[in-house]
Design a protein around this nucleic acid. Sequence first.
DNA 1: CATCGCTACTGTATCGTTACAGATTTCACC
DNA 2: GGTGAAATCTGTAACGATACAGTAGCGATG
Lengths: 349, 349
Amino acid sequence: MEGRTKNKAAPAEGGRPTLKTIAFMTGLGITTVSRALKDAPDIGAETKERVRLVAKQIGYQPNRAGVRLRTGKTNVISLVLTLEEEIMGITSPMVIGITEILAGTQYHLVVTPYSSAKDPLGPIRYILDTGAADGVIISRTEPHDPRVTLLTERRLPFATHGRTEMGIVHPFHDFDNERFAYEAVRRLVERGRRRLVLLEPPPNLTFHSHMRTGFERGLRDFGAESVSFHQVNIDHSLVAIRDEFEKLMQSSDAPDGIVSGSGSGAIALIAGVEAAGKKVGEHADMVSKVPSDFLRWLRPEVMTMYEDIRVAGRELAKAVIGHIEGRQPETLQSLSQPEFQPPMARSVR
Amino acid sequence: MEGRTKNKAAPAEGGRPTLKTIAFMTGLGITTVSRALKDAPDIGAETKERVRLVAKQIGYQPNRAGVRLRTGKTNVISLVLTLEEEIMGITSPMVIGITEILAGTQYHLVVTPYSSAKDPLGPIRYILDTGAADGVIISRTEPHDPRVTLLTERRLPFATHGRTEMGIVHPFHDFDNERFAYEAVRRLVERGRRRLVLLEPPPNLTFHSHMRTGFERGLRDFGAESVSFHQVNIDHSLVAIRDEFEKLMQSSDAPDGIVSGSGSGAIALIAGVEAAGKKVGEHADMVSKVPSDFLRWLRPEVMTMYEDIRVAGRELAKAVIGHIEGRQPETLQSLSQPEFQPPMARSVR
DNA sequence: CATCGCTACTGTATCGTTACAGATTTCACC
DNA sequence: GGTGAAATCTGTAACGATACAGTAGCGATG
């Protein structure tokens, strides 16, 4: 029997390979194997080669719990979302987009929900307190967002879907809602519409003011006037939106051009128009932001601008990872432009 | 200075509390604290009380990496999905539903995607090999699903969205697609339709045959005939579906009743009908399964049966957890019934 | 009074990894 | 041929938790 030191004892048979397995197979120490796999400078080139070869052969994959316990690195990105996500789920393409990027990395995606809008800081605190993730993605961003403050203070990398206005430079991805509304107005005016209404985002979210600004700039630049409609916003139920809009369309103040800040909102607006006995495309034209092309199929008379949520997911994932890797936040910001969708061809063969 | 044994050394100041912190504060041993928190029988009642109190006060939460490393328990449920999920994302409500249940437990939800349909076993193997999760939820279930075989063999708890036909008893949640198609036929026949067509799921998925069976049973029971339409299924692009359906509607073989196995498919079918110069509700009636109520808003002439994906998510989460906890698989199976949605009232005030 | 059994508690080893502080060999240089 | 530095490799301890094998104290028992 050879007198082996204890680190060189044969590893357990059945289980998955660990550093110990490779150490045993190569005759090296566990430390050496660990350092070889990290390409440390104090390990010989040939040794590295051997270790890498064996590791690959036996399909070694570092034990996440071991790494996490020792280093604190979780290799987890947490997507924080409210349980009350929009009816026309943007969550789906968002998740897909994020995972597309993470697939090429060691990161896993954990979805962390919070039940009501009353405690947006809950999940953030949980993640900070338990060290549950290396990075966080948040949505429904507000101009003065306490989550951003907290994450920045505690130095946990993150990226926001939407911008803030607090003077904190942080990674984000956003859709250019100002541009969207501006272009929407342009198109309505081009069609001869002059009395325009906006179904806006809820006032607490940052893109509320972006969209309003674009809308109003459009009114000025293209020469149109605004019809007030603040009773409901895109967060309200479709029924509420329809009912309010029906009233508006029946009043003497009825608009002839409609800009909808969300695809599902547009559906309710259309219903409101029709409940008032009018027709979109005839008594009024409509432009809507949409996350899919449903509306285009079902209501080709509505002009749509596409917001690609899947791309947003990809950008956000890249941004958090960049932040984790220490890149400068200002280089991790992106804005995507609305894509005007041409009317659906009657037969695209 | 008291001569303390080394386990009683004061824990690090700043960090989060560990068992050591509680041990130090109570004057007990780490082991005792651990066992007290697990309500082990060999710990005194008063001691347990004290430990629990202190733990609560300082907000102790077990370190997941520590537990995972020592016990192998990950406290993770993995949702495995294809990157090519349906256009009308069912992923979104599914994720929400799952997290609703997990919120009350120690489990986290990790989303594990696989890029192409060519390697459905990839993510399963990954989870098995790396011990990445305590349980798995899979969708797009096939009658002979290799993922189910593998997971069963390797004894990893799981639940499937959809059933299998392999004689393996396992947890699942499914929508009663047979019943849906049967009821759909009933309603079409009630409206005087006799030549019916089905836009079916892809043949490899289990619910293909369920839906077909229900459809055919309906034809027999209610007295109608089938119009063949197998060129496309709900997995095809909307454009492909529309184009094929347009041809069918223009042919002499045109159906007068349409059953759509998916909400997005229905959209393409409607477009096909209209491209052929006909109208739903006039030349043909349509019943569609839907995961939201869009279609009802935009095309009230289509009859819809609602499949509540959020509930499916909840059921699946409960089922995996049940399986993990060792309950019998046969008690973890559920089938949800189609909900016929009454036509949208013109004004629900 | 020695022994037994019971209750209540505790130390040690371990999961897989990495930081850190050596240890060994080789070789250039004076 | 002694010295030192460079190159390469290695053992130990620790992260936080738990399984396991104890130990201490105490009253009951023969």
